[in-house]
């Protein structure tokens, strides 16, 4: 074998072994979710169950915890957050990019500053605010703090800066109002950027643990991460089959969506790099 063949082979060998290690927790989680207890508590490595315990584990998981409800909550919360973020951020981004109004420079500085603030740092006053408003332990508590996405404003503003002024002027000549321009001209041209932002927003809020942990108490409001953590606390290391089944169910929606549209996902989440 010559060096010409050796190098690609080495590349694949290195990447495949690293990939194996990276995927191991996923594989082990799924494999465990398929095993009967006897094969889980074993003093040797068993890569794949000899007897499949799929129905039992997944049924037990669904029975012990309202996983469907958690997933639904996740969906409700992430979609509400995203829709509200767009409704708030798009007009502001358009105003910042294309309109001249008093206080515009100040607003942009605040947006840039806002991007730097880690959400955990302001959890205490936010918690007290929602406590005062009597909104703790509700969907509102899960959704409202994230309706303002300064990062979304920044991102969309950067995108709108690249839209030619002529297009906005043409729309004005055509008689479209400033409000109409946001939704009928800017939004359609910004679909790729909005999609990327949407993926970023949904993934980060689906996975968020810190704020839901603080904001809600009732099991009926648990988001998927809260739900699976609560499940694990109840099981406390006794019943790994159903626990891994629950973890698999919680992870499945995003991972499947990712596998279907990985390029868009990577673009979308890499956006956080700007954050």
């Amino acid at each position: 074998m010559t060096a010409r063949h050796l190098l690609p082979a080495l590349r694949h060998a290195a990447l495949l072994s690293a990939g194996f290690v990276v995927l191991l927790p996923f594989f082990w989680m799924i494999a465990t979710s398929l095993k009967p207890p006897a094969e889980i508590f074993l003093s040797e490595i068993r890569w794949w169950p000899e007897t499949l315990h799929v129905r039992e584990n997944y049924a037990a998981a669904l029975e012990k915890a309202p996983l469907g409800r958690y997933l639904l909550n996740g969906l409700i919360v992430t979609v509400s957050i995203f829709v509200l973020q767009v409704m708030v951020a798009l007009p502001a981004a358009y105003a910042l990019a294309k309109l001249r109004f008093p206080g515009r420079g100040m607003l942009f500085v605040l947006v840039l500053f806002g991007i730097l603030i880690p959400p955990q740092a302001i959890a205490v006053p936010l918690f007290l605010l929602f406590h005062q408003l009597g909104l703790l332990d509700s969907y509102a508590a899960l959704v409202l703090p994230f309706t303002i996405s300064v990062f979304g404003i920044f991102l969309m503003r950067q995108f709108f800066m690249t839209v030619p002024d002529d297009l906005v002027d043409a729309a004005r000549m055509d008689g479209i109002s400033e409000f109409g321009i946001v939704w009928t001209v800017m939004l359609p041209t910004a679909i790729p950027a909005v999609t990327a932002f949407g993926i970023f927003s949904v993934v980060s809020h689906w996975n968020d643990y810190f704020w839901p942990l603080i904001a809600v108490n009732s099991e009926t409001l648990f988001t998927p991460p809260l739900g699976v953590a609560a499940f694990r606390n109840e099981e406390a290391g006794t019943d790994y089959g159903p626990l891994m089944a629950a973890a698999t169910i919680v992870i499945a929606p995003l991972v499947i969506a990712f596998l279907l549209a990985q390029r868009r996902f990577i673009e979308g989440i890499a956006l956080t790099g700007m954050k």
Partner: peptide, 17 residues
Amino acid sequence: AVFFVPVMATLIAMAIS
């Protein structure tokens, strides 16, 4: 894609795994 999966998988669930 392989190396990116952990980035977007729910960390809480993966922590349990």
